Amino acid sequence: MKKSHGPAFSVTELDLVKCTICRGRAFVAGIFSPRPCMQCNASGWVSADTGEALSLEVLVTQLGIRLQAAERQIEKLKRPVLMSGPAAQYEQNNRRGAGGTNYTGD
């Protein structure tokens, strides 16, 4: 292990699993109304290694990392797919038709 002074500048992503008590819902059924799950500190997530609840600072950081990864994935899926080959030429407007419309030759 390498010696260092001060806090770490990078945070590693921990493995999280859904809480087995509340099944990831953060609440359990009470007698009169739902109540917060005490096993996972009402977050729905626990450590995959130990099965224990994470501290609030660690939990916020880990959920932030997961949210950023999910947002990157969503943005990646939103990007338009660039077609290539004959299909791309067929879909583009070549302005060779009547009035500058698309002419496909069909």
Score class of each variant (00 low, 15 high):
G6C: 02
V46D: 00
E75G: 12
S10A: 11
D106Y: 14
A88K: 07
A29E: 14
G85D: 02
R95H: 13
G51M: 08
K78G: 04
N102S: 12
G100E: 10
P7D: 04
G64W: 00
C37V: 07
W45C: 00
R72I: 03
L77G: 04
S43G: 03
A53I: 03
N102G: 08
A8K: 15
C37K: 01
L82Y: 09
Q68R: 15
G30R: 00
D15A: 13
T20L: 06
A87N: 10
A48V: 01
N93G: 10
D106I: 09
A48E: 05
V28Q: 01
L54E: 09
E57Y: 02
G30N: 01
L82W: 06
A98G: 06
G30M: 06
L59M: 15
D106K: 11
T50Q: 00
T20Q: 06
R25M: 04
A87Y: 07
A8F: 02
P86N: 10
E71I: 09
T20D: 11
E52M: 13
P7N: 09
S10C: 08
T12G: 14
A98K: 14
Q68N: 15
A29F: 04
E52F: 08
A8M: 07
P86T: 10
T101P: 01
C40Q: 03
Q39R: 12
Q68K: 12
M1G: 15
R72G: 05
D49N: 03
I21S: 08
Q68C: 07
T12C: 05
Q62E: 13
A70R: 12
S55K: 02
N41V: 03
Q89T: 11
P7F: 07
T12S: 14
R23D: 10
V58E: 13
R25A: 07
E75V: 06
A87T: 12
K2W: 15
S4H: 11
S47M: 03
A42E: 09
A8G: 06
K76M: 06
R66V: 05
R25P: 01
A48F: 00
N94H: 07
S47Q: 05
D49Y: 04
W45L: 01
S4Q: 11
L63G: 00
I65A: 07
L63C: 09
Q73W: 10
E75F: 11
N102F: 00
Q62K: 05
N94T: 11
K78I: 08
P7H: 06
G97F: 03
A53K: 10
G24F: 04
R66K: 11
S4P: 02
Q73C: 12
I65E: 08
V46F: 00
G100Q: 09
S10E: 12
C22H: 02
R95V: 09
G64S: 13
S33P: 00
F27E: 15
V60W: 02
C40S: 05
E91H: 13
G100A: 07
V28T: 13
T20A: 06
